[in-house]
Nucleic acid binder design. Sequence first.
DNA 1: TCTCCATGAGTTTTT
DNA 2: CTCATGGAGA
Length: 691
Amino acid sequence: MDYLQTLNQQQFNAVTHDVGPVFVVAGAGTGKTRTLTMRIAYLIEQGHDPERILAVTFTNKAAREMKERVVNLVGPSGIGVWMYTFHAFGLQILRRHISVLPYGYRPTFSVIDEEDGKKIIKESIKALNLDSKDYPIKSLKGRISRYKTQRIEAFEFNEEEMIFLEYQRRLRDEQLLDFDDLILYTQELLKTKHELREYYQTYFEHILVDEFQDTDVIQYDILQMLGIKHKAVFVVGDPDQSIYAFRGSFYGNNMKFIKDFNADKVVLDQNYRSTNKILDAANRLINHNKNRPAVKNLVSDLGPGHEITYFNAPTDYRETFFVINEISRLQSEGYPLHEIAVLYRNNALSRIFEDALIKQGIPYIIYGGLSFYERKEIKDALAYARVVLDPIQSFYLKRIVNTPRRGIGNISIQKLEEYARKQGLSLYDAIDDVPLSGKSKQALLEFKATVIAMQEKIDEAKHLDEVLSIILDISGYVDMLKDDQDETSDDRILNLRELVSVFKRSETFYEGSLYQKITQLLDQIALYTDLDKSQNQEDAVVLSTVHQVKGLEFRAVFMVVMEEMIFPSDFSTMMPNEMEEERRVCYVGMTRAKRRLYMSSSRQRMVYGQMKMNFTSRFIRETKLTRIDTVEENMSSSYLSKGDKVVHNIFGEGVVVSVDEDIATIAFPMPHGIKKILESHPGLKKKGYNN
DNA sequence: TCTCCATGAGTTTTT
DNA sequence: CTCATGGAGA
């Protein structure tokens, strides 16, 4: 147990704590994951059965990493630990027991993603003869999700509840579960099926939870039901980093756990990430929150470090220049670009920073956007796989029946659906006898023949990747992409190749028959969305919302657009709880920084095409940062204003006559005369400028 | 079935 | 402003 000696006192206390309820309040950068994995290793070495340890996380990545680290510490016995995300755990339980619930689900159900869910809501609205204009899908889906995760009666009109019920009915008819169902039905199973609850709460001797501050009420209920018998529940979290309330996480769980379980509290506040000026600033900010289950002040051994820079720009445009200039300077100091992050409150704010980075030729990547498995071609290929394995999955059949084009339009599908419903058949089974005109009918029969051809070929296949290759080949999907000269086609084909290699790599991962392997792989993919996005391989500046970099760290962080109405957002200025959450978002952003932290704002900004004057964010005030208004006086910069003396590499010395946005008009001695030059021009330097 | 235009809405999103 | 959506028309 040498590894115990690598722990500090606080971590040691947590890892070796007596078996029983413990809340480890682990601040940013205090070795949270280390502590959790070593706790698991410690339990195993104390003789506890790995197979009776359940550890839940929120991301696949965290689950995977934790498992690797446990195996590294204790050897192969660590493989037996139940290490899952909440959703993957639910999926395990439901694959075993879902038929016990009174909804007609079979263990072969599929899990749908956000986009599919919206599709089904849309269908539900149509089926109820309601006008989709009156029911914005996005917010309705959000409310349905909130209803499922928070048990809040959130429906505004009776019709909305009808849509919800229709949605739920359709999911059941089609043997589909959305993400929330994975949690909800697991809870229902444990709650209503006494013997199952008894079994699992006895079976799991230890329960560990990562990122506990992000649990919602249903998840808490599951943890409570599972943990109440042995009371060996070890949770790790940082209430100050709870920033997902809008997604259902319930801040109150933090206090509730301590009370319900009478848990011991262990605080980790020794930080290994940042220098102290950064930590002091973050501490000052978060101290403005009244509702904190555990007060802690992060400290580190890394010395005071650099001052935090707060820059208040006159225009949004100037703010981007401040950021760009500092990035260039950091780069010349030896900071790799991928160690620099520009963080903002919402995605719409990325644009002007992107533009500025493009102009300067600084490479960047934006976090967010479509993940690999959300791409159309990937979803199509996977839909084919599902249909070929089990053709009665009508939802997936509809997705691919006319892709590539087979002359099966909406009208034909509607008629087929109607007929299938009357006969009580799946769409696939209804194809043979559906009364349709010659051409459409012929097309449907041909589609069916294609599916059968794929099935026959797959019956002979031995490996996972063959399955996908057969599908892509016989369906004509790749041919379709090759044929159309859309510029994205090549990318799509490459993505499909990548998917084939995912199948190939997965071969040794799973056990059982080919069919069983595919099912497991599809499950994994259904819950997998991030695809190692945090591995920023290229040397590029990271642009991201604060939310998306939770858990990551960068040597330099720019928190931009620190303005009232934006950060904090205008949605939260009324509610004290939401304001505290907003402050936590800011805290999370600041604590990403290892060595340099910059915060910036602008006095005016273009928002939705209109010029807005925003006040500086209260978070700047609360952090007690000294403001820097003029870059010229205080930092390296090429910002120019009237009267400045400059040096140009060709024209020589000159005087600035005027500045219009980024264009400076400068008077040079004859024969050059008046020139208009981009103030960021590399050949242009302000005189007397000093690093 | 595709393309074009008018219209409206516009936080944060681990699964 | 910019993007998504949906209806009209080719």
